[in-house]
Each structure stands twice: as structure tokens, then as C-alpha cells.
Design a binder for these strands. Structure first.
Lengths: 220, 220
DNA sequence: GAGACCCTCCCCCGGCGGAGGGAGGGGAAA
DNA sequence: TTTCCCCTCCCTCCGCCGGGGGAGGGTCTC
């Protein structure tokens, strides 16, 4: 029996998944959670073999949950609305077996659950391509991949709406240095100015849109 | 019998809604659609009395569907992931009876369907507050409400990453004029620069994030 | 008609932003 | 070691951005 825990802040989605999975033989839904904190507790409590995890949730999001799962974690299938390049890769790095957009046909979800039960992956075509790109450094990569770590940090700050001097202060740098980084970022992304760079960063999930203008987000 | 059409690009969500609604007496799900174009066709074909409409879909989105529904339209309940101020108001203006976030408990969805069948509304608390603010101009309003039409246009362009001179060209204005508008926008939104204004605009759904850097989007 | 508001354009000016080039230190790989 | 890249900071130059103030013409309301 495959014991499944469903984590999603949308009750409708939880109902849908439960409905679909309950009809399957050998699969049992052992719990539902509406947020990340609940999910962690539930994982410890009911010891599911597979977790269906939504990426975007209020409070602790999917990535946070992945980070906090212990070493003997259940198999995790990420199910999300967005295909944000950054997050896909992050999720896989953090041990997610499958990463499926919510537009996925339910059959594929069932497949993924069965596969996950014995450590297998089912990837949506787009996601698969993305990972291949990432892992094998093959063909065309996101311009983001060409950024150095420092440049990413700067771009992240840009996407939060910070000015050069604010960034300098935040990263303990000279503003000259920040300008240098910003210039390379603009060049590498092929955009005209910081505003476009910020939008680009937001589009690629460097910063969740909701938090973008927040003064500080220590996240914890 | 209340005849319901479900429109959502996520099969999981469709299944969930169908499951929930099928259990209800007097409610019958007469169709499911995965995108806007399908939805319009289905409305004509099966003549549902209530449409559950997702706002964000590939291709023709929920607002487009609302715009294109004829005069003798079915009752429409908008069900969406985001509570983007702009779109809520737009949807209601376009005739949506209810506007519910997907985080809504399923009971409320059922309530909304029953209410919609005879022209009633069920609003999530947040949405209700928003509409009251909008309609009665009461208490605190979004800074967006203080913008003049022209300023909105300019902010929209800002959110697409346009420079002042590009905006001037696009709107057939002198760049001096654009600067004037940008200045008022910054002041009214209480932000420091155009980048922050752009982010603000994106957060409030003036431009869908995905389209933000697109060179032109005539939408059609 | 007087006010209020919006839209349009103008001026000045200071400063941030971005291009371009240079330079030193450090780490990693050939 | 030499080479290459990254990070750091410095410089100049200039254009765009944004603040402040002004001004004319439009509409709508009182």
C-alpha cells in the first residue's frame, strides 16, 4: 500500500487529488495539509511513503519544507502552478523526485506516485528538458546560468527594487563594485536597464513577486 | 437542476470541483474545459446555468472569456489563485457574480454555485472588503485608485520595462509629459524609483508577469 | 464665472545609472 | 608557473531619471 500525504493550500486541489488517488488500487491517502508547517508535523506523525507537495503556499513554502525534511524522508513529488526555472532546479537539488505542473493530466500524477513509491521519477516534458539543460550544460541555457554567484545576489536585490547604494550597503560593497556587477548582469541578460533586469529576475523566480518590495525578508 | 460548467487549465482542480459538486443534490456538472476558447464554445453548446471560471489560463484567460460572453450569459463565478486587486474589480465589472480565491473551502464554493443559480453572490472576505473599498470609495484604498487614467497607462508601460522615451512614443506624447506622469505615479505610490513602481504594477496585476518584458502585446 | 482637476509641455538642475576602461588580489585549473 | 576568471575598487563621461516649479487649455462642477 502506498501511503500518500497531500500538501496544498487549495482545498479544491486537495479534494481533486484525494478523489483521483482514492480510486486507484494500492494507493491510500493518509493525510492532507494546507501549509508547510502542518506538512512537516504530518510527515513525522503519519510517516507517508509519498508526499505530494505544492510549491507555493502561505508561510512556509514547498522549498522550505524540502529543506527541513530529515534524512529519512518520504519520496516527494512537487506539484506546482508555475514552472519557474530557478525553483525547479532548487527543488530537484533538494531531493524532489518528480516535478509536475498542475496542468498535468491526472494519470501522470498517479504514475508519478507509483514511480515515487520505489524511487522513480516522472517528469513533465518541459521540466525534463530544463533539467537536461541544467545538468549537462547542454545547448541553450537560461541567461541566468551565465551569472556568477555575486551577480545573482545583485540581480536578486535588483528584483526587490533596491538601488545601487542600498545594494552596496546590504552586501557590504563599494557602490562602484555594485555598478560593475549590475553592468555585467544587464549585458548577460541582454536587457536595457535595471527595471528590465528586475522584471527578468521576478519572472525567473529569484524573488517571489509578493515579497519583491518588502524592506527585508530574513526568511525564517 | 443547476447545470455547471467547469473551466480551469488544471485537470486536478477540475476533478476536485467535479467531485465536490457531483456529491451535491440539485447540482450537475455538464462539462469541463481546459482553456478559454473551449469554454466559449461549451457555453454555447451546453448552455450551463453556472460557470466556474479560472482567471489565469494559457491563451484566452478568464477576463477575455468574460468579455466575450454574450448578453444572455450564464452566471459566472470566478475562481482564481491570486487576489490581484485590478483583476478582481475588472472581473466584477465584466459581470462575474462571485470572485473566490482557490484557497476557499469547498463548502463556500458550493454555496456560491447555489447562490449564483439565482443571481446571488458569495464573496471571500478579502474580496468583499476590496469591492466595498472600490465601490464606496470608503476608507483606505489602494494607491492605484488615486491614479488618473493616464497615469495608469504610464504605470502599465513602466511595468513592462519601458523607458520614458519608449512610453512617449507608444502613447504619442512628449517625453516631458511622460516624465510628469511618472513623477506623479512615484509620488502617489510612495515608491522611490521607476523600478519599484514597475514591481508595484506587476504585483497588482496591471501586467501579467509573463508578458512583462514582451516587446508588444496587442492581445488578440 | 470661479475652482478643481486632468492633460499637455516647458525649464533648470542634481544625482543616479550605465558604458568603457583600468587595475590589483585571489583561487582554480592547465 | 602561467592563465583565466571572479571579485573588488577606481576613474571618466554622459544620458536618463526624478524633483520642483510654471504654464496653457480642456472639462466638469458648484
Amino acid at each position: 500500500m502506498i501511503r500518500v500525504l497531500i500538501v496544498d493550500d487549495h482545498e479544491v486541489v486537495r479534494q481533486g487529488l484525494r478523489f483521483v488517488l482514492d480510486q486507484e488500487e494500492g494507493i491510500e491517502v493518509v493525510g492532507e495539509c494546507g501549509d508547510g508547517a502542518e506538512a512537516l508535523a504530518a510527515v513525522r506523525a503519519v510517516r507517508p511513503s509519498v508526499v505530494l507537495l505544492d510549491m507555493v503556499m502561505p508561510g512556509m513554502d514547498g522549498l522550505d519544507v524540502l529543506r527541513r525534511l530529515g534524512p529519512d524522508r518520504p519520496a516527494v513529488i512537487v506539484l506546482t502552478s508555475f514552472q519557474e526555472d530557478e525553483r525547479v532546479v532548487a527543488a530537484v537539488r533538494l531531493g524532489a523526485l518528480s516535478y509536475l505542473p498542475k496542468t498535468t493530466a491526472v494519470d501522470r500524477v498517479v504514475e508519478a506516485v507509483r514511480a515515487a513509491a520505489h524511487g522513480g521519477s516522472v517528469l513533465a516534458p518541459g521540466v525534463a528538458a530544463l533539467l537536461v539543460r541544467q545538468v549537462r550544460g547542454g545547448e541553450r541555457r537560461t541567461p541566468l546560468d551565465f551569472l556568477t554567484p555575486r551577480e545573482r545576489e545583485v540581480l536578486t536585490a535588483l528584483a526587490r527594487g533596491r538601488s545601487n547604494s542600498e545594494i552596496a550597503r546590504a552586501l557590504s560593497l563599494g557602490k562602484e563594485t555594485v555598478k560593475t556587477h549590475v553592468s555585467s548582469v544587464l549585458a548577460k541578460l541582454g536587457v536595457a536597464d535595471r527595471t528590465q533586469a528586475a522584471i527578468f529576475g521576478l519572472q525567473h523566480g529569484l524573488v517571489p513577486l509578493e515579497e519583491a518590495l518588502e524592506p527585508e525578508t530574513p526568511k525564517e
